[in-house]
Nucleic acid binder design. Structure first.
Length: 687
DNA sequence: GAGCACTGC
């Protein structure tokens, strides 16, 4: 019970019986509708039917097609439920707009690409992979007959690296553009350039369709040379928005109080979705709710509480989707996974804490920060919309209208707050200097220069001022990895440990394989102890992977050992893919057996910028950027104090924590990267 | 001493 929320958990039952109430204003706050002055091609929106003909977009298909045919680029703004993503590609195909090419429709997420493709294949009465197909990592369900291809934006970016004019496509639809993922943002520039070059060279034209749910369309339109904008109505039910009347000091507490205000009055089976910021907060609130609900026994419907966050094992995530038993109420406590990635039916009430945990990158120090911060207005509306998917609903904002008005209109695009090393390398592979790239929103120049400097250190480019790719850099760009990991993999043969590095890099490039349930922490840690190596986290990961891959019945073993099967399985698929790429690069397989020093030395070839030396009791300083850092409590090295460590990343939460680390010898650094070591005066603890 | 938003190749 050492959680920072534990005190809170016990106070709540007393507090809640006092007249402690969050007052909400409900007077006429309406979602800003699409401007009625604009051409609105669609109005109808209430018929709940499966058939295509009843989708709002169907009635306007002729005008829509005419509009798309007129200009090379069109922006389509459509509300949820307009049917734009499934129908518009079909309409275009019906009039053979793609001619001899194909229609590519990008999605930010894998599942979306797969499910959309399967729905459209069904509607067109064909098998997936024939006329309609999809391409995501590890899965290419397309054939030479495929005309409608749903794919992740990252996948299209990979394809652009083989052909930057994207000649296979005659139409590219960039869907969910408002999400502004790094990949979508880069694609904006790539397709815009491909379209211009194809026109200039008199090649087959490329039509671009940008689909978004945002109202802020001028930005997109201006970027694409004032492309026309088409508006589509949706089929969203009205949601009544209520704001807190007074400022709330504690969004967690206010959310909790609001849950019970609703619970005491709302009819059973009206489910509640609460947006919070992270695992610990969610689990703590789940406990509070369960305790309070006990005291309400008989006075309100029975409550079922479901935490929801992405590191939850799949089975527990699936529980959320089971229909609520009659006479009961479901309360789902979710991170922002429920904003876009996961859709739950039956939600009548949304409680919006107004907060989100977000990662931001600081180019100068190379540090990442994970900070709870205020959401944007667009995000607030996205959350609100989750209450109106099947019928009208309510959204309780645990913050005032004034606070809402003071929020940013849109979230800062990812490209302006992430590490750009990968992007810069990929653009270079496309022959583009990032400093000159036509971004819709430019990332800070400093961030680009830092990325170039890092690539120089890794040996991927000639110089920062003349960033031509080296032979090594070209190879690195082929790997779907952080450039530092690509470098490590490409060095592995020198250290005779390609097998081992393949495993470690695959595990590092996915999500955590450990699942530590808050109530069984001791058992989970004891289970992990069986794999722990004194060398640190990287070798511990290797130990786990070696055992995992030797087993035939893996799922049960994972469960017994508190390991996340889904993530381990994913890592094994990554590993297969990387192994194939190694084969194509003529890297022979090799293994160092138990000689783990080889593995550790190899890791230094890519992570030498991430070395820290002990300064005093439990306090470390990074060698390059001179930052004070500590060992993250999740590390197997937490508790020990090795003089010199190599880490995978630093994340600042409260303090700056190094995550995924290995103990190393300073001498190794001198040998492997002598220039770096002497430049930064590595203190080589001579004994 | 004390903590892990979310995607994606």
């Amino acid at each position: 019970m050492d959680s920072k929320y534990s005190a809170f958990t016990f106070k709540v039952p007393n507090k809640i019986q006092k007249p402690n109430h969050v007052n909400f204003n409900g007077n006429g706050i309406k979602r800003p509708r699409l401007d009625d002055q604009q051409t609105k091609l669609c109005t109808n929106g209430s018929v709940p039917a499966k058939q295509r003909k009843l989708l709002p977009v169907y009635n306007v298909r002729h005008r829509l097609i005419a509009e798309i045919q007129k200009t090379p680029t069109v922006i389509i703004i459509g509300e949820t439920g307009s049917g734009k993503t499934t129908q518009i590609p079909q309409f275009m195909h019906e009039v053979n707009m793609e001619k001899s090419g194909i229609i590519g429709i990008t999605q930010p997420r894998r599942v979306a690409a797969i499910t959309l493709s399967s729905r459209v294949a069904e509607e067109m009465d064909c098998k997936q992979g024939e006329l309609v197909g999809y391409t995501v990592r590890f899965e290419d369900v397309t054939s030479s007959h495929t005309k409608l291809k749903y794919l992740t934006d990252g996948m299209l970016l990979r394809e652009a690296m083989l052909d930057n004019l994207l000649m296979a496509y005659s139409i590219i639809v960039l869907d969910e553009a408002h999400e502004r993922t790094v990949h979508t943002d880069v694609l904006f520039g790539i397709v815009k350039q491909a379209q211009a070059v194809r026109r200039m060279k008199k090649l087959a034209p490329l039509k671009i369709i940008v689909m978004s749910a945002t109202m802020d369309v001028d930005h997109f339109s201006n970027y694409f040379n004032h492309a026309p904008v088409v508006y589509l109505g949706g089929r969203q039910y009205p949601v009544k928005v209520l704001h807190a009347k007074h400022n709330q000091e504690d969004y967690v507490f206010s959310s909790l109080v609001t849950i019970f205000q609703i619970h005491k009055e709302a009819p059973p089976n009206h489910d509640i979705l609460v947006f919070l910021t992270g695992q610990e907060e969610i689990e703590a609130m789940a406990n509070s709710i369960r305790q309070i609900a006990l005291e309400l026994d008989g006075k309100a419907p029975q409550l079922k509480v479901y935490p929801l966050y992405s590191s939850l094992p799949s089975q527990q995530q699936l529980d959320v989707f089971r229909p609520t038993p009659v006479g009961m109420r479901k309360v789902i406590l979710s991170t922002n996974v429920a904003e876009t990635s996961v859709t739950i039916s039956g939600i009548k009430y949304v409680i919006d804490s107004g907060m989100v945990k977000a990662r931001s990158h600081h180019p100068g120090t190379g540090l990442d920060m994970l900070k709870v911060q205020k959401i944007s207005q667009a995000q607030a509306w996205q959350r609100t919309g989750r209450a109106g998917r099947e019928s009208s609903g309510f959204c309780y904002r645990v913050y005032t209208k004034q606070e809402f008005d003071s929020l940013l209109k849109n979230s800062i695009p990812e490209i302006q707050r992430c590490n750009l090393t990968s992007v810069v390398l990929q653009l270079l592979a496309l022959g583009i200097n990032t400093l000159e790239f036509d971004f819709i929103d430019k990332p800070p120049r400093e961030a680009i220069v830092c990325a170039l400097e890092q690539l120089k250190y890794l040996g991927a480019i000639e110089t920062v001022d003349n960033p031509g790719l080296t032979k090594l850099g070209m190879k690195m760009a082929q790997f779907p990895l952080d450039p530092r990991f690509s470098k490590i993999l490409l060095s592995a043969n020198e250290y005779n440990c390609v097998e081992e590095i393949l495993s470690i890099v695959s595990l590092l490039s996915g999500e955590s394989i450990f699942f530590i349930p808050p109530n069984k922490k001791d058992k989970a840690l004891a289970a992990r102890q069986k794999f722990v190596s004194p060398a640190g986290d990287h070798i511990t990961l290797l130990n786990i992977y070696r055992q995992y891959s030797s087993l035939t019945v893996k799922k049960q073993w994972c469960q017994e050992n508190f390991l996340n099967w889904r993530n381990l399985h994913y890592a094994s698929e990554v590993r297969t893919q990387l192994q194939e790429l190694c084969r194509r690069c003529n890297i022979p397989m090799s293994s160092c057996g138990q000689d783990y020093d080889q593995v550790q030395k190899c890791l230094i070839t890519g992570l030498f910028m991430n070395i820290a030396e002990i300064q005093r009791e439990r306090q470390y300083m990074t060698v390059g950027s001179r930052q004070i850092v500590s060992i993250h409590p999740s590390s197997t090295l937490f508790g020990s104090q090795p003089p010199c460590v190599l880490f995978t990343e630093v994340v600042q939460t409260g303090r700056c924590y190094m995550r995924q680390l290995s103990r190393i010898e300073p001498d190794w650094v001198m040998d492997i990267v002598p220039n770096f070591a002497s430049k930064h005066r590595l203190t080589a603890h001579v004994t």
